[in-house]
Each structure stands twice: as structure tokens, then as C-alpha cells.
Simulated assay, not measured.
Amino acid sequence: MRVGVLTGGRDCPGLNAVVRAVVRKGAQEYGIEFVGFVDGWRGPLEGETVPLDIPAVRGTLPRGGTILGSSRTDPLRQPDGVRRIRDNLAKHEVGALITIGGRDTLRTAARLAADHGLPCVAVPKTIDNDVPGTDCTLGFDTAVGVATEAIDRLHTTAESHKRVLVVEVMGGETGWIALRSGLAGGANVVLIPEQPFDMDQVCAWVTSRFRASYAPIVVVADGAVPRDGSVALGPRPGSGAGAARLSGVGEWLAGEIERRTGKEARTTVLGHVQRGGSPSAFDRWLATRFGLHAVDAAHEGDFGTMVALRGTDIVRVPLAEATGPLKSVDPRLYAEAGVFFG
């Protein structure tokens, strides 16, 4: 049996650890040969591959990025995309395809499996942690760790200069990174897309913090919006039609806080550092287990499934489950953190 592997969408820590686990177990226990498709869905679409065997994955466990490359290519938007993929899988004698990606990659895999019968098994990755069906996605823990360390460091400069520091983190349409890192880092305000914020309340929290003789840290997800909608949404660069985010919400928020409270405010935008670098210990563990179970599913011919974390177990769920409404922050979790605001 020959199995193809691809990594699609935006990069995140832990992708190489998945590929490593897939290849190690597949080759050692099942005698599977592997083909690495390069640059996400572009690889099977154009038939571009790289050798993928045990020597190729040695030393990749702690390595960030992806040795296979990635892209946001959507084969379903390409002329004869499905036929081209089918032909290239046949050309390379690939009987199963393990796709490692976020919501867009998983959605494509689900359609290819359900509508066209292609043999897909999926692994969920995204720092945003917004894929339904799994308790946690690959890359999320590392991103939270990076954001938490930044918040920890910013506390001292905020206190030294008696200024407000606004920390803008990634998250897309969800606030998982903002909430987890904000709570872990001792932020005084956390703003997430699921809960449109009241600017008057934000300023009240900031003022309250200064009355206690401390400088506040405000953590804001890049998709957070004010309740009155006074900041226009703009298209997210590189996104498909209809995708939007609050562009520059951190800078806007710092300006509003300074204008309304008279307190100096500065913004730190963490950006892509949250996606880069070596994966955390948890992400290495999760990636490895995802890879081991994904190759089991491929070997057993259990296509149209996604491996997922449920509690401490790795289970298989229908790929269709991963393409449902995104996994948003539960309002109860956000309410828990509210005791530390202000």
C-alpha cells in the first residue's frame, strides 16, 4: 500500500511531528510506502511529490513549519481539479491520502471523500482551535505559550512606564488564544470575537486598574469587534470571499483608550510569531498521537474520517463533523475570566 501525505493551509507548530509519526508507524508496522505531496493541495493537483521515508523524517520532531510545504490552494476551484487529483493519485499508486490542515483543508477533504469517493483521512491543525469535533487542534498550545510569555514580559514595561499595553493576538473568528493566554498571563481585560465589547466598559476596567496603582494589560483577539460596530470590517488578506476580520483592532483600541482615559497606550501585535518556531511539549505529544492514529485509519481503509482528541483519547469522527459550525468560546468560560477584569 502507498499513502500520500500533505499539509495544507497556514503553517503551525507540530506539522512535522505528525508526518514523522505517520511515516514511522506506517513503515515499521504496516510496510507502507509514502509519497509526500508538496505545498498542500497543489501537490496532488499538479502531481508534484517529494520522497517521504524514515530517513526523511528523522530529526523533525522539534522542527517548526512543514518539510512538505504548504499553500491555500483549493482544488475544488480549479478546472477539472477533482479529475486531476484522481489521476495523480493513480499515477503515483496512492491508495490513501492523509491530509493535515485547518478548516479549509478539512472541508476540501470532506467534499472529496463524500462527493467523489477519494480515500481521505484527516488531522486537525490550527492555532485558532476552532475545528469542531476535537477538544484541541494541533498548534494551539504552542501559540498560547508564545502569547502568554509575551504578556508576562509586557507586565514589567507597563508598570515601568505607567501605560496601557494592548496585546493583539491571532484567533480569526474565535477568541481561544486570547482567552487562554490572557487568563494565564494575568491580563486585566480580554476581548474576544464571540463577545462584542463595550468601549465604555473597557475604559472603566482600565481606569479601575490605574486606581489600584497598577498599569493594565489588555489582550484582544484580532477578530474582536466593538458592540456599536464603529470600526469597519475589512477583508482578511489571502482569505476567500466573505471572510473578514477587524483590521488593526489593537492599534484602534489603544487609540480609543488613550483618547477616552487620557492614559498613554501602546500596542504589541504578536502576529506570525504565534505560528512559528518549535512546537511545545504538548503539541509534540498531540501531533505524534494524531499521526499514529491517522495511519491506523488509512491502513484500515476508514476513509472520510478525522482523528480527534476527546479527553485523553484519540478517536475518529466523520470528516463532516469537522466542517460544521466553528468551535467558539463558551460564554461560561468567558464569564469565569471576568472576575479578573479591571
Rank of each mutant, 00 (worst) to 15 (best):
L97T: 01
P51S: 08
T66W: 02
G59S: 09
G95S: 15
T73R: 13
L68N: 00
T49V: 12
R83S: 10
R77E: 14
R107H: 15
S71P: 05
I100H: 04
R86H: 11
I54P: 05
H92D: 02
D87G: 08
L68T: 01
L89C: 00
G59F: 14
T49I: 11
V57Y: 05
G81R: 06
G95T: 14
L89A: 06
R77Y: 09
G47L: 00
R77N: 12
G47P: 02
R63P: 02
D74Q: 08
G65A: 00
V82I: 12
A56R: 07
R83F: 06
D87I: 07
L76M: 08
S71G: 09
T66N: 05
A90K: 14
I67N: 03
L106A: 05
G64P: 10
L89W: 01
L89F: 02
V50R: 11
G47H: 03
D87A: 14
Q78D: 08
G59T: 11
A96Y: 06
T105I: 11
R77S: 14
G95L: 07
Q78K: 12
V82R: 06
E93L: 13
G95H: 07
I100D: 04
T108Y: 12
D80S: 13
R58L: 15
T105A: 15
T60L: 14
E93Y: 13
T99E: 11
L89V: 04
L52D: 01
D104A: 10
R107G: 15
P79T: 01
A56Y: 13
V57T: 06
S70G: 08
R84Y: 05
G47C: 03
G65L: 03
I100T: 04
G64E: 07
G102W: 10
T108P: 07
I54T: 12
E93D: 15
R58D: 15
V94R: 07
R77A: 15
R103A: 15
T99H: 11
P55R: 10
A90P: 06
